[in-house]
Design a binder for these strands. Structure first.
Lengths: 162, 162
DNA sequence: GCATAATCGCTGCCTAAACAGTAATTGCCG
DNA sequence: CGGCAATTACTGTTTAGGCAGCGATTATGC
């Protein structure tokens, strides 16, 4: 039987993980979007560039899974970034169904100039957090993601780097 | 000067609060939506009903701020719930611009039957968390929301229960 | 080796949220 | 009071993500 973190009788939405996470997500966007849009990019565009920079993924499919973004929607974001000359689609002979995304020099320059601004903003926001608090928040969020992932339909869950 | 939780040189999106929170949000929806849609409700409809049940807010305006939902979109969700006889709009003479939302008996019965299912699911998902871990996650998420809120444009931030 | 299934990225369509503007009511300040 | 600004909920429009289906390619099973 599962632990009873919540009880139906005493449950209040205010202390719901779902509520808190949804709100934190929206607020984070509110804080970061102005920083990024100031430079002519949408948040999702920034995310794709950052994902490529950090080597999290190079395939649209993997990006979709990692970031939980719709495949069709992602295609259009990639189109936008490709049109602006920030990345390129490369077909590898190894598996011609897959596309490998590569930052162009311009794209790398762009994301490298954006990162410090986002970092500064996040440090500013997190100034009230002690080092241990911050580390523990990261650890618990990662653990939360892992456990959530395990409870999603296996069809959606499975995925490995290509 | 702000604490340097992140440094631009070593920053990786994988350990970004924004990334982790966005992902946790999506995964939470993936886990909870099936539970709720099984009973013929969308997640946002459930959220509104739960908000009313818990007395978080009774005005659309306050709900929008608390849950960071668009005002126009909320009007339509309320329409849906009102048409199904789950809540009613009441105009108080005190301030006739404001609408007070009230659960009908049917609405209360509906949300009371949904809550246990959501609670069970969340307990199942959070089974790997110890009590202290869970409590600490809640505390840190609340703190995160508070600090984020303080860094959002004041125009969006200000708000008090009516 | 061949037929079938599965995978990957893409396209068209649809819904719902974001955005902007409106009418009604109230607050404010002279 | 009276006129203007602010607030609240709502409506019309735009946009972007969700969803289903398609063509190309690869994996699988016999």
């Amino acid at each position: 039987m599962s632990k009873q973190h919540y009880k139906a009788a005493s449950y209040k939405s205010q202390s719901s993980i779902g509520y808190l996470v949804k709100r934190a997500h929206s607020l984070t966007l509110d804080v970061l979007e102005p920083v990024i849009e100031q430079h002519g990019f949408s948040f999702i565009q920034y995310v794709i560039l950052a994902t490529l920079r950090d080597g999290i993924a190079v395939n649209p499919k993997v990006i979709c899974s990692q970031y939980r973004h719709d495949s069709g929607a992602l295609t259009r974001v990639i189109d936008q970034l490709a049109e602006r000359g920030l990345l390129e689609r490369v077909r590898r002979d190894r598996d011609r169904r897959k596309v490998e995304l590569q930052l162009t020099p311009a794209g790398r320059q762009t994301i490298e100039s954006l990162i410090p601004q986002v970092v500064d903003k996040m440090n500013e926001v997190l100034a009230d957090f002690s080092k241990p608090e911050f580390q523990e928040l990261l650890r618990l969020l990662i653990k939360l993601n892992t456990t959530l992932q395990a409870h999603v339909e296996p069809s959606v869950a499975g995925l490995e780097q290509a």
